[in-house]
Design a binder for these strands. Structure first.
Length: 564
RNA sequence: AGCGGGGUAGGGGAGCCUGGUUACCCCGCAGGGCUCAUAACCCUGAGGUCGGUGGUUCAAAUCCACCCCCCGCUACCA
């Protein structure tokens, strides 16, 4: 049995995640975690809300509340959304947790204790004399030196697309108060990432990471690594522990990734086994996995291993980094400000969580960006979830009621050769699906489960148990045995993706009455005699354009409520 | 601008590294079949200049060069 730490990118608590945020991180990790548990591995799945960072601080300022208050209330909403989406976190915490803050400070002091890992350097940063604070480039606006665009941000000009430096803005002003900013010198603490170039290069070579992660990371190494600043002149965050760094906090990216350790520590402290986490991060039979969007590969493939290694502690290197491309919505990027896309809370007012989970996994953008549209939602729910899976289960269970009086008790010893052959086929596919899951090839696993359903539907149509039963009960039973076994396999296979609905399949069929579902418990004999009780359709069809209308009216109500 | 990834039928993917019969699979579409089932399921069919141009080769989706388009990163958004 392997100990698996499963993690996903930490959602920022400045807003509820949208479907694009959900697909590659929390949902993908959840499917992976659920599969591993089903397969009998020891799994701890952790993540948390990223509370720190300037966007949240600025939003809190605008709303007139403290960053802590805003973060906490958003965290409560985000946690609720994850629960409703059936995300099976073992610990969903925040970067404000005492364990996290303590761990991050201790970890940096450990890195600091090895001379040369951390050094200081003076930098020129925008400063707002009115707000009395330093501002990240993103929070300074001005006129672009290159194209003259008036609303260019300090990090990039939205008009000409050029990346900018602080000095490239003409008449820079603070986005909070609008007043003129000035450049001030300030000292920051830096992590000497280039020191770990050889280590990271060797790690990438011996690792088993996916080709896109490797090639992306190696490109970074070729360009040359740069020191990463650890500290920021901001009050909102974790106080930097270095001597002389009083008043500074740790930059979010330099603490977020350490949450993969601290959230696990917190989990084990709560369960009364404070050292349990060590086996997961240091143990020989332990693996770690990270589910992220393509935008933050290097933080996981380069920065994280370097930060862990630099502490001198015997951390395992990240074993699996699964990154997805982006989801677009009806051809456009998800946009909070323009309200393009669907957010995870409002999604649940349109369809049950299992529907969304299936749609997102069926589309999971693994190779390139994938577009989500109302039409694709409708098509996937209706034709795959409802027709292929739902109807297969329904027609099989209804057959048991109709032809066997609701009780199926004939065991595998009476199977005809045809059915024995068919069982070989679906069991082989079950093994393939398990392999895909274990490699986090989640979309391919999903496609293959659909093949499993297609093959079962085909089998029923070609063997026609409804006419066989008229003359030959034994052959009819043999066919139904195979069909029921396919339903059992498919239900197990779908448990990681649509846990609620797959459980309902198992319940209606009467599988796993006496034991917990398990990936390898594929035979039917142990479940006999099956008592098929009330059978009812598990899914219903949806109308894409009606869903769209519903969402629009929901939003209209919500904004009317805000104004009132 | 530089770097990385992607571009294969209406949509999604496999094939590309390691060149080789009619380019494969799923969804959708058209026609047919079946009647256990949720107007479901099954079968057959139509649909492709494999982003473009040029090159290497007996042979290119596959290898090389140049170009176009989409996305990301470029280290202070997370």
């Amino acid at each position: 049995m392997t100990k698996w730490l499963v993690t996903c990118a930490w959602p920022t608590s400045s807003d509820i995640p949208h479907l694009g945020n959900m697909v590659g991180s929390a949902l993908s990790a959840d499917v992976f975690a659920r599969y591993l548990r089903l397969a009998g591995e020891e799994v701890v799945y952790v993540s948390g809300s990223d509370h720190h960072g300037t966007p949240l601080e600025v939003e809190a300022l605008k709303k007139g509340v403290s960053p802590k208050e805003l973060a906490d209330s958003n965290h409560a909403r985000i946690s609720e959304v994850f629960k409703k989406w059936l995300i099976s976190f073992d610990n969903y915490t925040t970067t404000e947790s005492e364990v996290h803050k303590r761990f991050v400070r201790e970890h940096y002091m450990r890195i600091y204790s090895h001379p040369g890992n951390i050094f200081t350097r003076a930098e020129k940063i925008h400063y707002c004399p009115f707000d009395k604070r330093f501002l990240p480039d993103r929070f300074v606006e001005g006129t672009c030196r290159f194209c003259g665009f008036g609303n260019a941000r300090g990090d990039q000009c939205d008009n000409c697309g050029r990346p900018l430096d602080a000095e490239d803005l003409v008449e820079p002003h603070c986005v909070i108060c609008g007043r003129r900013t000035e450049l001030r010198e300030t000292t920051q603490w830096f992590f000497d990432l280039p020191r770990f170039r050889d280590y990271v290069a060797a790690y990438l070579d011996r690792s088993n990471l996916s080709p896109n992660v490797i090639s992306f990371s190696k490109a970074w190494l070729r360009e040359g690594l740069r020191p990463r600043s650890i500290t920021r002149d901001s009050k909102w965050g974790i106080p930097a522990p270095f001597p002389g760094a009083e008043g500074k906090t740790i930059y979010v990216w330099m603490e977020d990734v350490l949450g993969y350790v601290s959230a696990l520590i917190e989990f084990f402290e709560r369960s009364g086994n404070p050292d349990g986490w060590r086996e997961f991060w240091f143990g020989k039979d332990a693996k770690t996995s990270f589910f992220i969007g393509k935008d933050n590969i290097p933080f996981h493939s380069i920065l994280l291993p370097a930060l862990l290694h630099a502490s001198g502690e015997p951390y395992n290197e990240p074993s699996l980094i699964s990154s997805t491309e982006f989801l677009t919505f009806s051809g456009q990027k998800f946009s909070k400000s323009r309200r393009i896309g669907i957010w995870c809370d409002e999604a649940l007012s349109l369809m049950p969580a299992d529907y969304w989970r299936y749609v997102l996994i069926a589309l999971r953008p693994e190779g390139s960006d994938i577009d989500l549209s109302w039409a694709s939602i409708e098509q996937i729910v209706n034709n795959e979830l409802n027709d292929a899976f739902g109807n297969l289960v329904n027609r099989t269970l209804t057959s048991v009621k109709r032809f066997c009086g609701g009780v199926f008790a004939v065991d595998s010893s009476t199977l005809r050769p045809e059915e024995a052959e068919y069982l070989k086929e679906i069991n082989a596919r079950h093994l393939d699906i398990g392999t895909l899951y274990s490699e986090a090839e989640i979309k391919s696993a999903c496609r293959k489960i659909l093949e499993q359903a297609t093959s079962a539907n085909r089998y029923l149509s070609s063997t026609q148990p409804w006419s066989v039963y008229k003359t030959d009960k034994a052959s009819g039973d043999s066919i139904l045995y195979a069909a029921l076994n396919a339903v059992k396999l498919i239900s197990i296979e779908l448990l990681p993706i649509i846990p609620g609905a797959a459980q309902e399949f198992l319940r209606q069929a009467g599988f796993f009455r006496r034991s917990k579902p398990s990936w390898s418990d594929t035979g039917l004999d142990a479940d006999l005699p099956l008592q098929v009780g009330e059978v009812s359709p598990v899914f219903y069809k949806v109308d894409g354009s009606k869903l769209e209308e519903t969402l629009e009216s929901l939003r209209a109500e919500a904004s009317a409520g805000t104004r009132a």
